[in-house]
């Protein structure tokens, strides 16, 4: 009997942890999302009323931020994929004895705080950085154009911040490909492009799916990049939730928005995994 119980005993700390810090807060959040202000009460005083209209009100009021969140996250994910795929491919196939060193370089930004790095981007893209004067000199942007407080800066920041989450799973997947299957493809009359389309890409799909999910999901809920690099016009849903909670003290709306965001991500991810065809993955 002792033998059978041991695994459950080992699971107990994890279960208790998740119960306390995930399940209870979620239930609490669900409860909060249907509350209404106490008539004549102070700011931040709510009573339980099961008002599901909160969800519809919150969504209609913040449609713009919702769609912006998903559009920004999508663009950042596509950009991160475009940057990461050649990078991961080069490390896996051409890295040789420097493979591990190059992987450390990919992860190296994590040694500095996420916030600090985002603030650094603000400086790089700012008036006193080198990017804006250079682009103005060579005439790519007009003298009056700025890069900070734009959607461009927010998407760039997101792309940069989530890049390693894309690169690492892609690398793991591409590194597993036997280079001899690529040689076999060339041997069987496929040129370099066809080999990529018919062999390399399908074999790296697990990495593409994992990388895009690990980038898209946190990017859709992100508020740091929009807060530091953006303007009121680039607000994402994460910024709205943050300000509802901590500034306006409108807990029910913040909770309702959180659940709506979770549901939206869950639906999108499910559709995506269906579409990407997990059964096709090796």
């Amino acid at each position: 009997m002792g033998k059978i119980r041991t695994p459950y005993l080992l699971l107990l700390p994890g279960f208790l942890f998740l119960f306390t810090f995930f399940i209870l807060p979620i239930l609490n959040l669900a409860q909060t999302s249907t509350q209404t202000p106490i008539a004549g009460g102070d700011t931040g005083q709510y009573e339980q009323t099961l008002r599901f209209q909160n969800y519809i009100d919150a969504f209609i009021e913040n449609r713009e931020q919702f769609s912006r969140s998903f559009v920004y996250a999508l663009i950042a994910t596509v950009l991160a994929l475009a940057i990461s795929y050649p990078l991961a491919y080069a490390i896996a196939f051409k890295g040789g004895k420097f493979k591990n060193f190059l992987l450390v370089l990919v992860v190296a930004p994590f040694f500095t705080s996420f916030l600090l790095r985002t603030v650094a981007w603000k400086q790089i893209l700012g008036e006193e950085g080198f990017v804006v004067p250079t682009l103005r000199t060579i005439g790519i942007i007009s003298p009056s154009t700025t890069l900070t407080s734009t959607s461009f800066a927010v998407v760039m920041g997101m792309t940069y911040n989530f890049l390693p989450f894309m690169t690492l799973p892609l690398y793991a997947s591409i590194d597993r490909i036997d280079p001899r299957t690529l040689e076999a493809s060339g041997d069987l009359y496929a040129n370099a492009f066809t080999t990529f389309r018919k062999v390399t890409l399908p074999l790296s799909m697990p990495g593409v799916v994992a990388g895009t999910l690990l980038t898209f999901i946190p990017a859709a809920g992100d508020y740091v990049n929009a807060a530091i690099l953006g303007s009121p016009n680039t607000k994402m849903i994460g910024n709205v939730i943050e300000s509802r909670y901590f500034k306006i003290v409108d807990y029910p709306t913040a909770a309702a928005l959180s659940f709506t965001l979770m549901a939206a991500i869950l639906i999108l991810v499910t559709l995506y995994i269906r579409k990407a065809g997990t059964e096709e993955l090796v």
């Binding site: 299957t181 076999a184 074999l203």
Partner: peptide
């Protein structure tokens, strides 16, 4: 070519 480890396409 018949490759040493066969190099069949696993997918």
């Amino acid at each position: 070519t018949v490759f040493q480890n066969y190099a069949l396409f696993p997918h």
